[in-house]
């Protein structure tokens, strides 16, 4: 019978239906784990920079309402992405540990982290989708303003 992957037994005993993963599958996991860790590190550097700038602007302009409206929202965009990075890192680390120690429970736990990575991905995609719409709208507004500004003839003309 299948049990939820979140409830880990104290140790793993293979059943009649279980089969060894095999060299090919372990080879794929061995290649996958360092890339997941690298992705987590690179993306978290970007997210931390993304969090730093609005936080710095907010601290420098604590008294102004306009900054309180803009910067916390910008920071909220980077938080789910940072959570994704955390789960990608955990996935890679647990996969590496499972492979090095041949630990079945760590392998199963790694794929729990992958599922959490995907759930955080949905939240991040929703936030980035909203911000992308806002960016597209503001870009359109700026370009329209520039074009109308250029169309106004100078008085000397």
């Amino acid at each position: 019978m299948n049990t939820p992957l979140d409830s880990f037994p104290p140790n793993f005993t293979p059943t009649d239906d279980d089969r060894p993963a095999g060299e090919w599958l372990e080879g794929y996991w061995r290649q996958m784990a360092p890339w997941a860790i690298r992705l987590a590190i690179i993306a978290s550097v970007y997210c931390l920079c993304g969090l730093y700038w609005p936080l710095r602007n907010l601290i420098n302009n604590l008294g102004e309402l306009q900054h309180w409206l803009v910067h916390p929202f910008t920071m909220m965009l980077y938080l789910p992405a940072l959570i994704i990075c955390y789960y990608a890192y955990q996935f890679g680390k647990m996969l590496e540990h499972a492979l090095s120690a041949q630990n079945q429970l760590k392998l199963e736990e790694a794929f729990v982290q992958l599922r959490r990575f995907l759930i955080a991905g949905i939240v991040a995609a929703l936030f980035w989708g909203l911000s992308s719409f806002a960016e597209l709208y503001s870009t359109h507004q700026i370009i329209n303003q520039q074009e109308s500004f250029q169309e106004v003839p100078l008085e000397s003309e």
Partner: peptide
């Protein structure tokens, strides 16, 4: 089953497969 339990390595368990 006894030989399986003694075999080191990673397994395609039912739990893992159903999770994937």
């Amino acid at each position: 089953p006894e030989e399986k339990a003694a075999t080191p390595g990673l397994w395609l368990s039912n739990r893992w497969l159903s999770a994937v």
